[in-house]
Structure formats: C-alpha cells, structure tokens
Design a protein around this nucleic acid. Structure first.
Lengths: 205, 205
DNA sequence: CCTACCGATCGGTAGG
DNA sequence: CCTACCGATCGGTAGG
C-alpha cells in the first residue's frame, strides 16, 4: 500500500501532464469562475474526476493551489521585466513590448493571470506579503521605464505611477472581452489596445 | 411628522431605517475588504455591534445586502448616462464628464463602487441577469457616444467597445491608489487620469 | 435585541 | 484512489 502511494505523485497520465498539474489547471478555472472562497474542494474533485479526499495525495491544501497559481504568474512577469530592462531599444518600444506581453498573457493564459490578479488577497500570510512586495516592485520598475521615457522626451509628461495603474488595469479589462459575445479576435483586440494606450503616452507628433 | 424629521436632521428616530443604512454601509466595507463569500454575517454583526441574529430584524438575507449595494451603484450610473445623453455639448466633453463621474465615484464612494464592480458575480439569479443586462446596456451607450465622436472627427478612429473596456477598467484601478502609501491627492489623480485617457482618444492636434 | 440552536457545507485526516 | 468521518463555521430561524 505504501508503495502504491509513493508512485502516485509522479504518475503521468496522457502526454506530459502530471496529475498535480491537471489539478492546478482545473483549480485556476474554478477559482476564476467562482472566486477562491466560493470554489470548494469538492467542486474541484468533481471536475478532476476523483473524490475530494484523493486530491490531498497530490497537493497539501487548497491555499497551496492559490499560491502556486499566483507565483507562477508573478514570476513570469518578473522574468519578462528582467529581460526587458536589459534590452537596448527606444523606451516607447519597451513599453509597447511590455504591454503586448500583458495583453497576450490575458488572452492566452486567461484563467491563471485573472486569478493571480483578482484572488491574491486570499493568500495566507508568508505568501501574501511576498506577493504584495513582488507586485509593488514590478510596478515601480514599470514606472521607472515611463519616467526614463519622459526624460528622453519620448513619452509625454504624465504621472508615471498613475500611468502604470491605468495600463495594467486597462489590460485586466480583457476579462470582459472573454465574457463578451461578439468578440473581435485576439490580435485585433491587441492592436486596438496598443493604439489607445501607447497613443495616449506618446509626445504629440 | 415630516416637520419633526426635518428638525432632527441626520438623527432619524425611525431606528429601522437608520439601522439598515448602517448595516449596508458596514457590509460594503466588509465585502470590499474580504470579498463577499469570505465576509461572514458574524463579522458584520461585530462591526455593527450586535449579535448575528439581530441583523435579520433589519435585512432579509446576506444576498439582499449585496444586491442593494450593486443596484444603488448601477442605478446612479444609469441615471448619470440619461442626463449626459440629453446634454448638447461636444462629444469629447461628454466623454470627459463621464470619466470624471466614474473617477469621482471610485474616490468618494469607493467601498460601494468597488463591491458592485468586483463582487456582482455572487448575485443570485433574478438579480444577476438584471445586473448584467444593465451593465451591458450602459457600456453600449458609452460606446455609442465614442462612435458619434469618431463620426464627428473629434475622436480618433478606435474600436469603440475596446475603448470603453479600457476606460472603465483603468478607472477601477483606482483601487490600488486607495491601498497605496504615498498617495497623490484625489484631484491630482483625476487630472492625471483624464490627461492620459482623454488624450489617448483625441484626434491628433 | 438576545440566547439557543439548526442543517448544510466547508477543508482536511485516518486508514486501508 | 476510496470510504468514513471530524471539528469548525456558515447563513439563518424560533421564541422570548
């Protein structure tokens, strides 16, 4: 019996996906749909196709699922910021690249990105403070890029933290695009958003 | 009796009415802070200063609190839209006025507006569909204003629904301004946001 | 407005 | 991976 359990954690089902990875994916969908608190482990077990108790052979707790989702997303954005800061391109192009990364994240990894954006407040405390710090740092780095753009006269004079707040939240609005019936396609959406957001920042031509 | 109430000013003797208003206000604060599902009626009773059971002498259910909050806000915005559509002013000024109304709502009635924006999905079903319809209609009316602006060449050519989505979500980002430590003041924030958002829409001068 | 209490549901554990 | 079950907490009611 012990042997049986030891194997469970590593079993890969179809393709290259672990049982744990499936659980995390389904959790992201459920947390997005109902919210973290309203989604129960019994709901999750149903969509995975096992009894609730069986989930705990793969994960430690419900809260673990939330912090895995949140930090996967946060780390991806932090890593992108590292790469971007190192690039030697005009500031307005840096901003555009960053925005496109965010938009494409909301379009193609919707569930996870949405959950990390809207449900992080339910994180338990060692993770909660970490997450808030990482988020705050990210926004400061984004604001610093905008300020550099202002100094170089590529970007019009705006309050940089306010601009960051507008950009990031505008993009998180893609949530209603997902829910909408007559969707324009993802690429058109991206171009529309870039036109308005980057257009609003550029110094008048 | 009417005269009596006038003399009493804000201190109403009809304790039912006042009490209910207090409960709704506190509920909005709690729902904003913890989310609707995570906020319990015992939490609410504590902040009001009574036992949980006593709340039910003033309200019917937890869900009633949520739909009162959501529809108070939604009706205020719908009413504003009615007034605005009737005004005979340049389109770009209409848009600016509407945005200022939204921003000022987020600054001065933060708890209620935030809750109606983020927690409406927990509404029960006769209210849920009503709310979604009202919201969808409001956005279409907003998009129609932008489209009129494009026809009159006051607004640059953008996808109107996308522009609406950006504007509304950008403004809901004021949430992080409330949480932030080094706040700029509310009026400065409003002017910054208007500059970026309206600036991004205007046809190039 | 309170005390006393209800059935339902929650996250999670024991043990095979 | 399952059955059986735990204590805690939930929204809400009865009755004074």
């Amino acid at each position: 019996m012990l042997v049986y359990f030891c194997f469970m954690g590593r079993i890969k089902t179809d393709s290259n996906t672990t049982r744990k990875e499936v659980i995390i994916r389904k959790a992201a969908e459920l947390f997005r749909e109902k919210g973290y608190k309203a989604a129960s482990m019994r709901d999750l077990a149903d969509t995975v196709g096992v009894e609730a108790a069986s989930l705990y052979n793969h994960i430690h707790s419900k809260s673990e699922l939330l912090h895995i989702i949140c930090f996967d997303v946060a780390n991806r954005f932090t890593q992108k910021m590292d790469e971007l800061e190192a690039e030697k391109i005009p500031i307005i192009q840096k901003i555009e690249k960053l925005l496109r990364f965010h938009i494409s994240g909301m379009v193609h990894h919707f569930e996870e990105v949405y959950v990390s954006d809207r449900e992080w407040k339910h994180l338990a405390d060692p993770y909660l403070s970490n997450y808030q710090n990482q988020r705050r740092t990210y926004r400061k780095r984004f604001a610093a890029i905008i300020e550099e753009g202002i100094r170089k006269k590529e970007v019009k004079k705006v309050d940089a933290p306010t601009a960051v707040l507008i950009m990031l939240h505008a993009i998180s609005g893609i949530e209603s695009w997902h829910r909408s019936k007559q969707k324009i396609n993802g690429k058109e959406l991206e171009e529309s958003m870039i036109a308005i957001l980057v257009g609003g920042l550029k110094t008048s031509r």
